[in-house]
Amino acid sequence: MELANIENLLEKYFEATTTVQEEQELQAYFSQDNVAPHLQEYQPMFQCFTNLKAETSTRNVPLQPRKNYLKWISVAAVFVLTTSLFINEWNKQRQAEEAFEYFKTTMALVSQSFNSGASHINYLTQFEETTNKIFKTENN
């Protein structure tokens, strides 16, 4: 490649008006050994770009299919929550029923003893009757 052409390209290169192909030509020119002395100061620049292009990533990316655990965990959590709420509710219901039964038997007992107490009061009326027989009030 003639020198004038390279100089021309360099000029354009620093104005960033070169095409990718022209830049590749420049890179090719500067990567060879016989570079014109007055252009040698540009050589490290292109050398550097070539070096940088050679860098490669060495780490392998672990691409385990990341399972969507979160989704299933949330489904399970919702399930547990609803069942526990349901059981809780059911328990409450049962407790209330139990308490009601207990209350009913107690009240039955109370009414039973009240009734027996009340039946004794009947004798009091007897007493009243007999006194009426003895002390006759004037109103009668």
């Binding site: 050589q43 490290p44 620049m45 050398q47 550097c48 070096n51 940088l52």
Partner: peptide, 10 residues
Amino acid sequence: DSVSFVHEIM
């Protein structure tokens, strides 16, 4: 070396 110098400039 100039090459690493260019790197530093970058």
